[in-house]
Design a protein around this nucleic acid. Structure first.
Length: 479
RNA sequence: GGUCCCAUCGUCUAGUGGUUAGGACGCUGGCCUCUCACGCCGGAAACCGGGGUUCAAGUCCCCGUGGGACUACCA
């Protein structure tokens, strides 16, 4: 293996960053960092109609959010730029000329309608739908005639009838027979390079040593290797990792639910948790540990531990990891990250007392599995927000419960001391007054105080709510 | 249909010829506890099928079967 590998992540800015692509980026990142190589970020925006700069911005933003930094690419100058395909057009033209001179390509004047027609008739006759090479042997006068009609040609590569074989780093030896491949377009009639053409030129010019990408590119590899051969370029090493699947075992897509990094971000997943989860999907590390820091992942990463079969995305497991990461955050960090989610839940974090808020967060953090869940957990701390559930009302609906709550409230009126002291004494008072203990003692207090039958330790809840608010709530429970 | 890839608990995976087939999520029983969560202890749960090779096959080979990807002037 080259001692300083150069790898690349080459997304097209035609949508939000998909978790599958994020995982490809992660694998490339881990590979580069593990081997002390370089990661190139290249924007593949040759589809003018689908690409947009706003997607490019969000893509770059999501990668940064995930903590996956690159060494060359947008915002990072390098000697192999530009790193955006739309800025490399002259390079493609130049390379097309080389193939023209070598007579390895030809112009194709077929319209999309004609091609579609051919495809349909091939399907009807149960044959493989592929381009049959109609324009391959057009004479000069025929070409001129077509051009005179105003037709702009696309350029097709003359696919050689050879076998293509290569060694995939995760899958081993793979071979394709040339006959099944039709002459494919390398430059479109609008002058833009097609994917297989642009990648080969860019990967070569950018001195990419390892192409690590999803299994969905496996069959493209054959076409690309043909182009490498046509140019006389040395192909890079290929590694095709498995795809992320949905519950139905089909490639993960929008219809399966959340698929973009942005969506998971909105739901309140921590970037570290998402990265950790993605690393676990379809790959394993030497030490069978599930929770790993980026440094540990870099250390243990190896492509030959990448699995070959697809991996079903399991949000439950992501949630579990996320909860662990949330618990490991400092309270200040958690508070900062929670702010936008609080706002979205209708709170005004900037108007709340920071130390009080810190106490609230400390109290509920153990039950938090995603940041966006914060709203439902902290309602009990706000007088105007907590609501009596039917289970709680049921608890309150007994003579014993009333006795407990009244006694607890009675003590509060003249109580002095710290909240914990007051709480402890009030409970003691209620116990003595009612003769009840355990569940019968605590549940009524909890129900009256929070309106719910479950939640954090009562003592902590009381400390956060405070004596006055507690007294008000008790009165409200038994007006 | 064609080409290519893949196949261990429901899910993510360990396993590289000899294991009681291990771990994690989820599920579940218990402990902790006023409750939930956290935490701790336990449980159920898998080698797609058939042929070989071998003293021995989850592991190697072949054939089925099943699943997936690709099959665009998208990447």
């Amino acid at each position: 293996m080259a001692d300083r590998p150069r790898v690349r992540f080459a997304p097209s800015p035609t949508g939000e960053l998909h978790v599958g692509n994020a995982r490809t980026a992660l694998f490339n990142w881990l590979f580069a960092r593990h081997h002390g190589g370089r990661l190139v970020l290249r924007i593949e925006d040759t589809d003018e109609s689908r690409s947009s700069v706003s997607y490019q911005v969000s893509l770059v933003d999501d990668l940064k959010w995930l903590g996956l930094d690159w060494d060359e690419g947008p915002e990072k100058d390098g000697t192999y730029g530009p790193y955006k395909q739309s800025e490399r057009l002259d390079l493609y033209t130049e390379h097309l000329k080389k193939l023209m001179d070598a007579d390895l390509v030809y112009p194709c004047y077929c319209t999309e309608e004609e091609l579609e027609e051919e495809r349909q008739s091939l399907i009807l006759s149960k044959r493989m739908p592929r381009y049959m090479g109609k324009c391959r042997n057009l004479s000069v006068s025929e070409r001129d005639a077509l051009a005179a009609k105003g037709r702009k040609p696309s350029w097709r590569f003359k696919v050689p009838q050879t076998t293509v074989e290569f060694n995939d780093l995760v899958r081993g030896s793979i071979r394709f027979e040339g006959e099944s491949i039709g002459d494919f377009i390398i430059v479109r009639s609008n002058g833009m390079p097609a994917y297989n053409f642009a990648v080969v030129i860019d990967d070569h010019l950018m001195a990419i040593t390892h192409v690590i990408r999803g299994e969905d590119h496996l069959s493209n590899t054959a076409l690309q290797i043909m182009l490498y051969r046509a140019f006389g370029f040395e192909p890079p090493v290929f590694a095709h990792h498995c795809l992320i699947l949905g519950k139905d075992h089909a490639k993960l897509s929008k219809r399966h639910g959340s698929v973009s990094v942005g969506e998971f971000r909105m739901k309140g997943y921590l970037p570290a948790a998402l990265v950790n989860y993605l690393a676990l999907l379809g790959s394993s590390f030497a030490e069978a540990r599930e929770v790993m820091s980026p440094a540990e992942m870099i250390e243990a990463f190896s492509l030959d531990r990448a699995s070959k079969s697809g991996a079903v995305f399991d949000e439950e497991k992501l949630r579990w990891l996320n909860a662990i990461y949330i618990r490991n955050l400092t309270v200040d960090d958690l508070s900062n990250r929670l702010r936008p989610f609080l706002r979205r839940a209708g709170y005004q974090p900037e108007k709340l007392d920071p130390s009080w808020m810190k106490q609230v967060i400390e109290t509920v953090r153990d039950e938090l599995t995603a940041l966006a869940d914060i709203g439902e957990h902290i309602a009990i701390f706000f007088d105007g927000r907590y609501q009596m559930t039917s289970e709680a009302a049921q608890i309150l609906d007994s003579a014993g419960a009333k006795k407990v709550v009244l006694a607890f409230g009675e003590y509060l009126e003249s109580a002095v001391g710290s909240p914990v002291e007051i709480y402890t004494a009030a409970i003691k008072h209620a116990r003595e007054k009612s003769g009840l203990k355990g569940r019968d003692l605590f549940m009524p207090v909890r129900a009256a105080l929070t309106g719910k039958v479950q939640g954090p330790e009562l003592e902590r809840v009381f400390a956060v709510i405070g004596k006055e608010s507690a007294a008000r709530r008790l009165k409200q429970a038994y007006p």
